[in-house]
């Protein structure tokens, strides 16, 4: 039952994120706010409680399954694009190829002297 307390931690931080989004109207999701707040809280507290680890570990492992229902929807919108889908796929693939190469090249360049493996 230790995971239950940890799960309450996670849900609470998500809800705190919701309250912050409501109060400040910032365009960031409550999940991401909760993630940052949780990491800051753990740093201030100095350590991860066992209950939290017991809940967080399995949830992170299930991340792929949790995004799956949304991914399924993608296959049901292809018809709406008409003849544009080739251009759309080319820009996404080429754009992503270029941005990945830029990130890797730039980070390696910036990390010079930081013993990059």
């Amino acid at each position: 039952m230790t995971a239950l307390g940890g799960f309450l931690w996670l849900v609470s931080f998500w809800l705190i994120g919701e309250v912050i989004v409501y109060l400040t109207a910032i365009p960031v999701s409550s999940g991401v706010l909760g993630m940052l707040l949780l990491s800051i809280t753990l740093a201030l507290r100095g350590g991860v409680p066992d209950t939290l680890a017991a809940a967080a570990q399995p949830l992170i492992a299930l991340l792929a399954m949790l995004i799956m229902p949304g991914v399924v929807g993608v296959f049901f919108v292809a018809g709406e694009l008409g003849g544009q889908w080739v251009a759309i796929i080319v820009s996404l693939m080429l754009g992503t190829l270029l941005s990945v190469l830029t990130t890797l090249w730039l980070m390696r360049h910036l990390m010079r002297g930081q013993n990059v493996k």
């Binding site: 998500w14 993630m35 809940a55 949830l59």
Partner: peptide, 28 residues
Amino acid sequence: YTTYQQGAAWLSVLLGPATVALGMPLYQ
């Protein structure tokens, strides 16, 4: 798909706490 999605929302709702959970490895 919409009928499936409504049911699967019971799982996707966990995406919120799962995203928060990423704060743990981030801290570590």
